[in-house]
Design a protein around this nucleic acid. Structure first.
Lengths: 176, 176
DNA sequence: GGTAAATATTTTAAGTTTGAAACATATGAA
DNA sequence: TTCATATGTTTCAAACTTAAAATATTTACC
């Protein structure tokens, strides 16, 4: 009995070690995690995009921009919007242009800095967004309905840790 | 003592219930979870996009398409690629066009179905992809370095559950 | 003050992406 | 067969997106 279990233990031990950093160049677990994250966000994003278009005839990027402005009643500079949305400056320029044309958003010069422009929701924009936000919130609850509060909490924490990990990794290589 | 703790219990109980479905129209937790998921994927995607451009002079969508083909040595139809990448058909048509022009991918008619075209990596495409995939795997390991194997496992499970939840929710509304 | 570096924005070109319409072929039912 | 419907792909217009260059202004340092 003893000698048989020794071999088995050895095998198990190697398997366990192999999972971590013993196999150079094998990053199976991280790769699959990334693909799964991507699948989840693609599914959700696609669904939200479709619903926003069908119910409110608006695109997802425009909705996202309005959502940023709704959280900042005094308005934001274009650069601040760009950072918060994590998209390029030029991208925001174009989106704002179209939202201004629709009367949902307005620009005004910064009194302090003549380079900067502030953007904020118009009254109409705020009214329109209010309805969309309510629906959007309901959709989110619907899509995540299969997770109980504890699972949502766990996911929040693990994603927070993921975010820190990614940010640390990108900081490090930025400096090289 | 008894009467004081009664009030306290009542208060706690209401707080606990309030978190679930007692507040109509409040989907704070789900909303924040979604935003956090989006932040994580945006950070990672942006980093990968930049690195692929700087090191391999290739775009992320092209890399993603090649990754699908690498997993299917016999090739895939355009429609199958479209489904796996979760993008529109027309999108794939254009991507394949550019990859064919670069000599990384080749098309051939389906022998069975004259509507369908198969796409697969060329020898050069396979060789080029091999180097990119190695780097990509390393990057993933680097970005997720802050998570230990148990955390990766938990995230995998929670995201699998999320995926099922989203799919169920979208199926339901599809039928309405 | 003068000037180099930093910051805020726009512009541009190339590419990606969608949704809808159009087209080609396949399949199944009468 | 024949036709209605389904499936595979392309085309098209509009929008989105990026990265890089250009412009305008501010800030910091001498």
């Amino acid at each position: 009995m003893r000698s048989e279990s020794t071999r088995e233990d050895w095998t198990i031990s190697v398997d366990a070690e192999t999972k971590a950093s013993e196999r150079p160049g094998d990053h199976e677990a991280e790769l699959r995690l990334w693909l799964r994250m991507l699948t989840c966000t693609s599914l959700i994003e696609g669904e939200i995009r479709t619903r926003l278009r069908k119910r409110f005839d608006i695109t997802l990027p425009r909705f996202d921009l309005m959502a940023q402005l709704e959280k900042a009643p005094d308005g934001l500079t274009l650069g601040e919007v760009s950072r918060r949305m994590m998209v390029s400056n030029g991208n925001v320029t174009g989106l704002v242009e179209r939202l201004v044309a629709e009367g949902l958003v307005e620009r005004r010069a910064s009194p302090k800095d003549r380079r900067a422009t502030y953007v904020r929701l118009t009254d109409e924009g705020r009214a329109v967004f209010s309805g969309m936000a309510r629906a959007h919130g309901d959709w989110m609850a619907e899509l995540f309905d299969g997770l109980d509060p504890e699972e949502i909490g766990s996911l929040m924490e693990l994603l927070a840790k993921t975010k820190r990990s990614v940010q640390r990794a990108t900081m490090e290589t930025d400096q090289r």
